[in-house]
Write a protein that binds this DNA or RNA. Structure first.
Length: 899
DNA sequence: GGCCCACCG
DNA sequence: AGTTCGGTGGGCC
């Protein structure tokens, strides 16, 4: 029969490990009362992930009882070099013990002894009583206890990985030594973290060699006279006291006067009833979700008034649609929730795998049969009925997917994904379950929990399982609607939602479905030319380097440049030499560097753009259909994926050629591009109220020249030289980003001192810009968030962080987000108005793309003049600011030509 | 899956 | 001690 098991846990060392594993995020793990929880989180994961599955018969967590122990009596400086335990950790010790207790594990400490000694003692007692003992610790010192019946698990990499120490492993690590000899090694080499010395001048290698030869420190000194004279012998003789003391300190007691016995240590398992309020107190939402999914009820959370609704309403009435129940479905009215599941995130190509429709009053109806959405089905009728309001999750995905099934979705009224994102841009997770959990609703699982991820992704075969999940999603959408809409209203975001984001969703869906035509012939021609250039450059580089290597590997390139060719490294990355453009350009006129820069440029065009685009052209219509992510960025911008059409090359001619492949979808049509000029600087002028900055725009001045005159004191009748204007331009942009003197000096190539003076002059000349910057940071600190002109909100928890870096970052973000985000608001409003105007004018034109401050259209040549005027008028009047908005536009046969 | 690098506004 | 905002994608290791 297998032996009974005893688990001994080193509470202090694991708490330290857990704390420091998440030290970078210490300010993020704080509960609603301000208690830090990073160590609690890590410790809890350990208990859940390791201890619970292990399910021992007996378990104990041992804790240090205080700073003074019998070891400090022997050696004043024992652990004397340790900094005081941070307050953020100290405050977690008491809840840690509660947590241990709620997991059904006994805690124990003993005055005058360390946790190690309790563990050593209990381990030997357990071993003698016939237990298989496992010790879990963050401290490798405990490996001295390893025996046939005692295994030591030591966490590493924070606490995410664990090494299992057995006698065989010790033998391997210490060249055949036994576990108990580790203390002799430590006696000789010392321990810097515990601050005992060992023998000066004896390191790990010598220590190992000596103990291998003499077995122990005491045997070594017995034979020391026979040792031949050497410096080492002298060190050993002089250090005898230190060695004996250090050995003593390193040795873990196995006979501490503990007052507990094995019979006190029964492992009871978690106390579910009481651990839930405990987790709630700590704001451990993920843990609550786990418990809820295991069937443990989570009562309504008390502290978060904003999100208080009935989590216990988990009764779900979901049934498969049958010919008979179709009558019920057809009678649905008022408001319904609809959810369509796809087998892939790219909804332009994914297959629908099931859907659900219904509400709380009439129940939910699910099916895998997509035929039920087509022809004259009642479901299609409901979806196309403007008067029946739909609650959905990700309306844009639904518009596009349903359009592919020939269903024209109407009456979308609530989009859970969109609303959650507007409430908190961090809630941009595309998973409905996860997002519901963020809003304290736990009666639905995440897709990963139900479907798995990666290679394991699979839609459940059993109808009951799939329909339950779909039904719960639909129910979550319905139940979250009211509380979240109420929050929107509290945040003054109802207009943002109803008049900007929700209408925009439909427009983006149409743009995506329309797609833009890509001339693959053009790309194929480019590809063969670029292939040739790449192989020429490659050969040249090999010649310059003297051998072949992977030019695309920064690591190999670093070796070639900075080791073999002995150029001086200018900058390092975390993993080695930096070989970025910035570095390579600083290396000056070196032929291999020029070749590499050229190679990189061409390789980028080839792989990302030529080949990347060719891969995503749809065979059916020769177009690419990007997806705009409307709920991702922290500022309110869109992003574009599969393919990304917001970063098509433009600055360098060779890359710009790519734009020749973007052409109108029909003969005799053209491309129109219209973009806002300096929209962010205009927004800056508006929201800061700075009269000097506003005057420049109102008077139609060249803003960079105007800034140049101000910061470099150039008189009105003197010209602004190109290089000076370029510097001023960098300053104008830098201000928007919260640049430092360091950053500006690097950017425009002046000294740091000069850069500092320039920034100061800028703020003198535009005093209200300075005032606004200070004010917005103060406001962010007070409210915890910043806002755009349309009340788009970004929370900045780090604005109060103690860490300089995190705080500075938050301060720059506090300035930049209202500017970048307001610009995003403006172009979104413009898109809605342009679409309306095009419809009203009865034009055939399509809006195709948005690139942050630019809109791209296609239209018949015959209506292009009208379209251009319409677009310009709508864009420059989209909103009224204290400065004018300026739009420039161009027409051409391709995107390249519309410049 | 993280890192480096390069492209966009 | 680090130093300019917001993104996506390819390739390496």
């Amino acid at each position: 029969m297998a032996k009974p098991t005893l688990l001994l846990i080193d509470g202090n060392s694991l708490a330290f490990r857990a704390f420091y594993a998440l030290i970078n995020q210490v300010d993020r793990f704080v509960n609603h009362e301000g208690l830090h929880t990073n160590a609690l989180v890590g410790f809890n994961n350990l208990l859940d992930g390791i201890i619970e599955p292990f399910n021992p018969d007996l378990a104990l967590v041992a804790w240090d009882a205080g700073k003074t122990t019998f070891r400090t009596g022997k050696f004043d400086n024992y652990k004397g070099n340790r900094d005081n335990t941070p307050q953020e950790l100290v405050e977690q010790f008491e809840p840690l013990r509660q947590m241990v207790s709620l997991h059904g594990i006994k805690s124990y400490e003993l005055s005058g002894y360390e946790a190690d000694d309790i563990i050593g003692t209990m381990a030997r007692i357990g071993e003698a009583d016939g237990y298989s003992v496992t010790i879990v610790t963050g401290d490798r010192d405990l490996t001295q206890l390893v025996s046939d019946d005692i295994t030591v698990w030591v966490t590493k990499k924070g606490i995410s990985e664990i090494d299992h120490y057995t006698p065989a492993m010790i033998a391997e690590l210490y060249d055949g030594l036994e576990p108990k000899q580790i203390v002799d090694i430590k006696g000789l080499q010392g321990d810097t973290s515990d601050n005992y010395p060992g023998i000066a001048g004896i390191g790990p290698k010598t220590a190992l060699k000596l103990i291998k030869k003499y077995h122990s420190i005491s045997e070594m000194y017995e034979q020391i006279d026979d040792m031949k004279a050497s410096k080492q012998k002298e060190k050993l003789i002089n250090g005898k006291q230190d060695a004996l003391l250090s050995r003593d300190l390193a040795e873990i007691l196995t006979d501490a006067p503990v007052t507990i016995s094995l019979s006190d240590l029964e492992y009871k398992g978690p106390d579910y009833e009481n651990i839930i309020p405990f987790y709630q107190h700590l704001d451990f939402k993920a843990q609550l979700v786990k418990l809820a999914n295991q069937g443990y009820t989570v009562p309504t959370s008390g502290h978060n008034e904003d999100a208080e609704f009935d989590l216990n309403n988990t009764e779900l009435a979901v049934s498969e649609i049958t010919p008979a129940s179709l009558t019920h479905v057809s009678q649905l009215q008022g408001t319904v929730s609809f959810y369509l599941e796809l087998d892939d995130e790219n909804y332009h190509t994914a297959n629908p795998v099931g859907f659900v429709i219904g509400n709380q009053e009439n129940g939910y109806f699910a099916s895998r049969d997509m035929e039920l959405l087509t022809q004259n089905s009642p479901v299609k009728k409901i979806l196309e009925d403007q008067t029946i309001l739909k609650n959905v999750f990700n309306a844009k995905e639904l518009y596009v997917s349903l359009k592919r099934l020939d269903v024209a979705l109407k009456g979308v009224n609530f989009d859970l994904l969109l609303v959650s994102y507007l409430l908190d841009t961090n809630d941009n997770n595309n998973d409905l379950g996860a997002l519901a959990h963020d809003n304290d609703y736990y009666a639905v699982m995440t897709d990963e929990e139900v479907y798995g991820k990666g290679a394991k992704f699979a839609i459940p075969e059993a109808d009951a399982d799939l329909f339950e999940h779909l039904g719960r999603k639909a129910m979550a959408i319905n139940l979250l609607r009211e509380p979240l809409l109420e929050l929107l209203s509290k945040h003054e975001q109802t207009k943002l939602y109803e008049e900007i984001e929700l209408p925009l969703t439909k427009i983006l869906a149409d743009m995506e479905s329309t797609g833009i035509t890509v001339d693959s012939e053009q790309l194929l021609q480019m590809r063969s030319k670029l292939t040739e250039r790449l192989s020429e450059l490659e050969q040249k580089i090999y010649q310059q380097a003297g051998h072949e290597f992977n030019v695309q590997s920064p690591k190999q390139l670093g070796v070639v440049l900075f080791e073999e060719m002995k150029y001086t490294p200018i900058k390092k990355t975390k993993t080695g030499y930096s070989t970025s453009v910035e570095v390579l350009e600083k290396m000056g006129d070196v032929s291999i560097v020029a070749s590499i820069l050229a190679y990189r440029q061409v390789a980028k065009i080839q792989s990302t753009y030529v080949e990347g685009l060719l891969r995503v052209i749809h065979g059916s219509d020769s177009k690419v259909h990007t997806r705009y992510l409307q709920t991702l960025t922290q500022t309110g911008r869109l992003s574009s994926v599969d393919p990304n059409l917001q970063n098509i090359p433009v600055r360098i001619e060779e890359g710009r050629q790519i734009r020749k492949a973007f052409v109108p979808s029909q003969a005799d049509w053209q491309i129109l591009s219209a973009d806002y000029s300096q929209i962010e600087l205009r927004v800056l002028a508006h929201i800061t109220g700075d009269k000097n900055l506003q005057a420049a725009f109102i008077n139609g001045e060249d803003i960079h020249a105007a800034t140049a005159r101000r910061i470099f004191g150039i008189k009105d009748d003197e010209p602004v030289e190109g290089n000076i204007r370029r510097q001023a331009k960098a300053v104008n942009f830098g201000i928007v980003y919260g640049i430092s003197d360091f950053g500006l000096s690097k950017n425009i190539g002046v000294s740091r001192k000069e850069a500092k003076a320039i920034i100061e002059t800028y703020f003198d000349q535009y005093p209200d810009v300075k005032k606004w910057s200070d004010d917005i940071i103060a406001s962010a600190r007070e409210k915890g968030y910043v806002e755009t002109i349309a009340h788009r909100r970004r929370y900045l928890p780090d604005i109060k962080a103690k860490r300089f870096n995190a705080r500075s970052f938050a301060e720059r973000t506090a300035m930049n987000s209202p500017i970048q985000g307001s610009a995003a608001d403006i172009i979104k409003i413009a898109m809605i108005k342009v679409q309306e105007a095009i419809a009203k004018a009865g034009l055939q034109a399509h809006m195709l793309l948005q690139v942050h401050d630019e809109l791209i259209f296609e239209a018949p040549e015959s209506e292009m003049a009208d379209l251009e005027e319409l677009v310009r008028n709508v864009m420059d009047s989209a909103v009224t600011l204290d400065v004018p908005l300026l739009v420039s536009s161009h027409v051409g046969a391709s995107w390249y030509d519309a410049k």
